[in-house]
């Protein structure tokens, strides 16, 4: 069940009446099935090249602060999180999508930010308030790129 902070204050009856496809205010709705989001956000098609640029960008994707990955040109990759090499073989695009959109839905203790969620946040800085870390289109770009990472690192 996806609920924005404001929506959470509404009577449960009203929230229920809005139906299963409702989303957080300002975000496109999506449906979670099992551990995945099967449908692309807003029906958008992602572009792997744009996705790669977002993942490698430390002020947009921020991914390499925590993860390492197959980016030979990027020095100083993080080691707080599993290597992204081969992640497209381990996970389907639908699974990757939920892990990006809201990994906390799967593991509430994860340190990985929920990239397309506004709920459960406190004291967000003015410049970032009211918008997700990545837009729906950027999420799809990153999913499209991650799906191409099929080789575990070091494999010939």
């Amino acid at each position: 069940m996806r609920r924005g902070r404001r929506a959470a204050l509404l009577p449960a009856v009203l929230a229920f009446a809005l139906g299963p496809a409702r989303a957080e205010e300002g975000l496109v709705p999506y449906a979670v099935v099992g551990d995945a989001i099967p449908e692309p956000l807003a029906g958008l098609a992602g572009d792997p090249a744009r996705g790669r640029a977002i993942v490698a960008d430390r002020t947009r994707g921020l991914c390499l602060l925590c993860h390492a990955g197959p980016f030979p040109e990027e020095r100083f990759q993080g080691n707080l999180a599993p290597d992204l090499a081969g992640v497209g073989a381990r996970r389907s695009p639908a699974q990757l999508r939920l892990r990006l959109v809201d990994g906390r839905a799967l593991n509430p203790d994860t340190i990985m930010p929920s990239y397309y969620s506004l709920s459960g946040l406190a004291r967000v800085g003015r410049a970032w308030r009211g918008r997700p870390i990545l837009s729906a289109g950027e999420i799809e770009d990153v999913v499209a790129f991650l799906a191409t990472l099929r080789e575990p690192e070091g494999r010939p």
């Binding site: 430390r58 993080g78 967000v124």
Partner: peptide, 23 residues
């Protein structure tokens, strides 16, 4: 936990000190 990234000071400085955050 605070901010858009939902991190806490403790996540970095209690639980992950010694690890590499980017550079």
């Amino acid at each position: 936990r605070q901010g858009q990234l939902g991190l806490s000071c403790a996540i970095c400085h209690d639980d992950h000190w010694g690890r590499r955050l980017g550079a």
